[in-house]
Design a protein around this nucleic acid. Structure first.
Lengths: 139, 139
DNA sequence: CGCATTGAGTTGCATGTACAACTTATGCCC
DNA sequence: GGGCATAAGTTGTACATGCAACTCAATGCG
């Protein structure tokens, strides 16, 4: 049972792979989770937290707290949205600069991660995550 | 950048897949991480925490806390090992019974996870985790 | 023998994560 | 208009996780 468990395997992968990135980013006081969030906000312009959370299949409460941290750092700003308690996230210049600085570190980590997974493995992860991502959208 | 990031993808996979298992196991007040630990202890007989942590590529401190929780539940026992502050973990009958009860729930989750990943995807995850696991042993 | 090193666990602190329950604002239906 | 349902965030609580620093025991070396 234990050997086949898919959860055990993805947990192992996450511990290993995200460790590689976090180690690389540590000098910036930044984690991969935060970097990804930041890049999404930078790319997709003003977005609502809920939208990002849905795309990442992340709990809204988790999103809320992650956003809070990054706002405290001044990397992004939270402003009231159109209606109700809607919010929009916008990247700040401090956040853009951080992404610039993170890029080379990220690249190094990406190389190391690829080496760990193997070229085939890395491609598989891409495919699989896409598959899962698409299914989540159709819910 | 963000789209290629392997860490982002494995994080997404973990959130999604482990969620499936945790939802299934919730009636037992058990998480997948705990179940995996419990099964390892059950299978590999008296083992040291450090050994299990190494196999799972998990920080010893994380292991320490996870063990503590499960000991509190009476699922396993911790006894002093041969020397120094070495410890050995042993499954308790309460733990064995819990595994029995968890089995059918786990199977359901495994099916759902396979459906999400696709048959090919599930196999790939197996292969990749094996590859990574072996590389960790050779360190 | 005495001290430095190493090994195994633990603890302080911080992040990432989820579920449940709560707060507010909108919108809808009668 | 008055409730009722829904949508978006927040907060309480708990687990999973890692790093740094610490405790203690064993070991080795001069």
């Amino acid at each position: 049972m234990v050997d086949e468990c898919l959860a055990r395997r993805v947990l192992l992968l996450t511990r290993t792979i995200s460790g590689v990135y976090n180690e690389a980013l540590r000098p910036l006081g930044l984690t991969v989770a935060q970097l990804n969030l930041l890049v999404i906000v930078a790319k997709r312009g003003p977005v609502s937290p809920g939208e990002v959370a849905k795309r990442l299949n992340m709990e809204k409460s988790t999103m809320s707290r992650n956003v809070r941290l990054m706002e405290d750092h001044g990397w992004l700003s939270v402003s009231p949205g159109q209606s109700g308690r809607a919010q929009v996230l916008t990247i700040e210049s401090k956040g853009r600069k951080l992404i610039e600085k993170a890029l080379p570190l990220w690249q190094g980590a990406q190389e190391r991660a690829k080496a760990l997974l193997g070229e085939r493995g890395a491609r598989s992860i891409h495919t699989i995550a896409d598959t899962v991502g698409k299914q989540l959208q159709h819910e």
